[in-house]
Design a protein around this nucleic acid. Structure first.
Length: 308
DNA sequence: CTGGTTGTTAACCG
DNA sequence: ACGGTTAACAACCA
């Protein structure tokens, strides 16, 4: 499932590839995922230009400019007229189909055009068509959202407005993270990292090696963490996330151009590797139940108590 | 056929 | 109020 690193890669690509494009048609296959009626969504989107794109937790948000002055470059300070908010839920793909006969950033980077999976017809839930005949389709397995908010109303979109800061937000530092931890002494550490209202963007993949890097058992209560452990956790989270971003995200997710990321099994420490040796001490990695999710831990590096 | 997995919300309980 | 648990949603895979 896409988490913060994948969203970061997608947002960067969307900014480079889609900025300035004008939406001329919208295809809504699954109305259930909308926060508006299909007719409202269509009239809100058609005619607007993409001003920019950015990630917010597990959401990808497009700023849209109103019709009339479609060239975002000519007026970069213009206030967006609306926002399109996409969440792929438990997993999905974007399929970008470039302008016929054009060279994309992927093409320039050396991807094989013949191999590009582009839009698989009929399998997407939502599609934007642009006036230059390029398209962006979105496929997810039912839990995704396609929402829109009008200008000045983004703060009233509850699902994104209630998100906490990104762990990679420069405005959040170790002291800020320490305050988050200290404010909730009775909570389990894994539950804190997964809570999108506190820290946005970490899911059940990256949480695994974030905990292992700090030698923390997922069920450790926050009140039991030492100052050094909090700092180790903070560093571990940021290290895991930025390592994946540097490699283009998870190897089993695909970017806008259909290319897989470079962060694969060899990059994991303990995540999804039950039965394999801990890279630090060699102890066999275990899979345990933590609430409704699974956690992969090294039972000797990550103990609930230090066991005197 | 069974059930585990995946993110998010809502409802419920101690 | 807080935090853990569960169900619900839908599709895929083993």
């Amino acid at each position: 499932m896409p988490e913060l690193p994948e969203l970061t890669v997608w947002a960067r690509q969307a900014r480079g590839e889609l900025t300035g494009k004008i939406i001329c048609a919208v295809e809504i296959v699954q109305p259930k995922c909308l926060n508006l009626t299909p007719a409202e969504m269509e009239s809100l989107l058609v005619g607007k230009a993409i001003l920019g794109a950015y990630e917010r937790g597990k959401w990808l948000i497009f700023d849209l400019a109103g019709p009339g002055t479609p060239d975002a470059e000519s007026d970069p300070a213009r206030v967006p007229a609306a926002h399109l908010l996409l969440n792929l839920g438990m997993g999905g793909d974007f399929y970008y189909t470039p302008v016929p006969g054009s060279r994309t950033a992927a093409g320039a980077a050396g991807a094989h055009d013949a191999e590009a999976p582009s839009a698989s017809p009929g399998k997407h839930q939502f599609k934007l068509s642009f006036t230059d005949r390029s398209e962006l389709a979105l496929r997810f397995w039912w839990f995704g959202y396609v929402h829109a908010a009008l200008a000045g109303r983004l703060h009233r979109h509850e699902m994104t407005a209630s998100l906490g800061p990104s762990p990679l937000d420069p405005a959040l530092d170790l002291e800020g993270f320490r305050r988050m931890v200290k404010a909730r002494p009775r909570r389990a550490v894994k539950s804190l990292l997964m809570d999108q209202k506190i820290l946005a963007g970490i899911g059940n993949v990256y949480v695994q090696d974030s905990l292992w890097g700090a030698r923390l058992h997922p069920d450790r209560s926050l009140g039991s963490l030492s100052s050094a452990e909090i700092e180790a956790l903070w560093n571990s989270i940021r290290d895991v996330l930025s390592r994946s971003i540097a490699k283009g995200g998870l190897a089993y997710e695909r970017d806008l151009y259909g290319r897989p990321g470079g962060y694969g099994r060899d990059d994991y420490d303990v995540a999804y590797k039950p039965g394999e040796p801990c890279p630090r001490c060699g102890t066999t990695i275990e899979k345990i139940r933590t609430g409704s999710t699974s956690t992969f831990i090294c039972p000797s590096c990550q103990q609930i108590s230090l066991g005197n």
